[in-house]
Nucleic acid binder design. Structure first.
Lengths: 150, 150
DNA sequence: CGTGAAATTATATAAGT
DNA sequence: ACTTATATAATTTCACG
């Protein structure tokens, strides 16, 4: 993971569908070398996934919400996190220090589907307390902090 | 935006670097048609960005935090959101209902760099109040809720 | 809108430095 | 590790249903 890898990763985080040929021009390396480095970043698990950022409203998700959730006891952790992974409307979930145990980010069709999801979450074994915030506007939504390659 | 578009978008959200040839096999459409639909999704702004999910620890970001921030007055909104966009350590920022105005997600090298960033944020004009939570574990981190194409 | 074939690019492989 | 050259595969363009 040297500065060349960081430059390549930065290119991919800005546009993961650009060709190795384009990347090779910005980082000044041969195409074959760029491809080999990308493969290594994938094998090492530095690149976990290639994905897209989609416009939520345009795909029919009009409601974004954050939800704080607490568990009665850590023994419920595994079952809870499984539900997080399995539910496609839950786009992010962090285990936290503080008053609540988890912070969830939810993207869903309407306040009605949010209410359904809220009921699902409250009925997960061990969930004791929740608090929901509506997102009025997503100012920024990324996944990866890519500092500049020095 | 029909069910075929949703299927293609789901493929890309799972792996944005897979070829149109592969996608054409899963969605049962010709390669040229898949490419044309992808271009249309891009032009319509349904696809906002192609990006990667990187392992934060492996790229040297050992600290993830959520920060709640309040502004004294909405007139500071534009300047605040500009800082959000410009700072690469701030990976997400939502404008919220509730006690605080914004929820930030921060990924940074160490608690020292978090402290520096905290100081930067507190010194933005209009920022009145902040509250920081440490993320102990990222259970899930995505950007896009992709419901199944019916 | 969709397909299929030809032309253009990109990627993968291998040999040499 | 990187480069160059070659082989394989993907994408783009376009004429046509």
């Amino acid at each position: 993971m040297d500065s060349m890898d960081r430059s390549i990763l930065k290119c991919l985080s800005e546009n993961s569908r650009q060709s190795a040929t384009e990347i090779s021009q910005t980082v000044h390396l041969s195409v074959a070398a760029v491809i080999e480095r990308i493969r290594k970043l994938e094998r090492n698990g530095i690149i976990r996934q290639y994905t897209v950022v989609a416009d939520q409203h345009k795909i029919g998700n009009d409601v974004t919400a954050l939800m704080e959730v607490s568990l009665e006891h850590p023994k419920y952790y595994d079952e809870f996190t499984k539900v997080m992974h399995d539910n496609p409307s839950i786009v992010a979930c962090d285990y936290l220090t503080g008053d609540y145990d988890f912070m969830l980010k939810i993207q869903t069709k309407s306040s009605e589907t949010l209410e359904q999801l809220h009921r699902i979450i409250k009925s997960i074994k061990g969930v004791s307390n929740t608090k929901t915030y509506f997102v009025l506007k997503e100012i920024k939504c990324g996944t990866t902090a890519m500092a500049e390659a020095q």
